[in-house]
């Protein structure tokens, strides 16, 4: 294959994407176009920019989202409906992942349309997958440590929604939810916000403590590393540090996790740092 042929192929791939975006306008072709575009979203760097700026695309994605609201309560979401809206969410995640379009999506308050999905409790796979995908979109917003994103999220109910998922979700959902909380904590404004009142601090640490006692059973290093990072960050706030001296779970002080931490030197180091922070006066 020579370079001309490669160029030719990439041109054809791009034209296929444009055709799929135009297909979104047609309700009869939309479901298939959502599926194909969501599969291709990693293959084309400018897809986020094209999706945002193309006429009607984000409005269509919003239509897809709100059209499943009636299926949330009483729970009536089917696998087919869940897959379809999750493909739409995958495209939103693509737009949220790009630094040029993330602020635009935020400015239009699009993340708030996902919150009703996070508020569901049904345990079926259709709902579990919808919650996981929605958390993935929020995760894409917070991934790049942007204080504007964090400030926006702090003005919404995202923390209680994540805490609920950390309490009740599947392991995958829990991991994304605690990732979001960790990212909020890593932000200075986020740490201040969570440590501002005892109730907030208590809400977060209650869920973290519960996770620790469950992790003592499941020994999942994937979740434990986030839990340790959250406690460590909390311990950097003077009032939270004081409170943690009283309420840090014993499992983090004894050898409960020694086995799984042996293979994760970084997390072991963070845990040591946490314990050192709590030692001082």
């Amino acid at each position: 294959i020579n370079s001309d042929q490669l160029a030719q192929r990439s041109l054809q791939a791009e034209e296929r994407i444009y055709a799929l975006i135009l297909d979104l306008m047609n309700p009869n072709l939309r479901e298939q176009a959502l599926l194909e575009l969501s599969k291709k979203r990693e293959m084309y760097d400018d897809l986020a920019i094209i999706l945002w700026h193309s006429y009607g695309v984000v409005s269509i994605l919003l239509q897809e989202i709100i059209s499943v609201y009636p299926l949330l309560s009483p729970p009536a979401l089917t696998a087919v409906a869940s897959n379809r809206v999750c493909n739409a969410l995958a495209l939103l995640q693509c737009i949220a992942s790009h630094s040029a379009t993330r602020p635009l999506l935020l400015n239009a308050h699009i993340p708030l349309f996902l919150y009703p999905f996070l508020n569901t409790t049904s345990k079926t796979r259709a709902f579990e997958y919808l919650r996981l995908t929605s958390l993935g979109v929020i995760g894409a917003f917070v991934k790049n440590d942007n204080s504007e994103v964090i400030n926006f999220l702090l003005s919404t109910e995202i923390i209680p929604l994540c805490l609920r998922t950390m309490e009740n979700g599947s392991e995958l959902s829990r991991t994304v939810a605690i990732f979001i909380v960790q990212k909020i904590l890593m932000d200075d404004a986020g740490l201040v916000y969570i440590c501002q009142t005892y109730e907030r601090f208590y809400a977060v640490t209650t869920v973290l403590n519960d996770m620790v006692s469950q992790l003592a059973e499941t020994q999942s290093i994937r979740l434990l590393k986030h839990v340790i990072r959250c406690y460590l960050r909390l311990s950097e706030n003077p009032r939270a540090r004081e409170a943690l001296r009283q309420c840090l779970p014993d499992e983090l002080r004894d050898a409960t996790f020694a086995g799984i931490l042996r293979d994760d030197i970084t997390s072991q180091r963070y845990l040591n740092q946490l314990l050192i922070n709590l030692l001082g006066n």
Partner: peptide
């Protein structure tokens, strides 16, 4: 208060 009291995610009425 956004985080509610008592149950961690309690007081969260959508």
């Amino acid at each position: 208060d956004a985080l509610g009291r008592g149950s961690a995610a309690g007081g969260l009425n959508q």
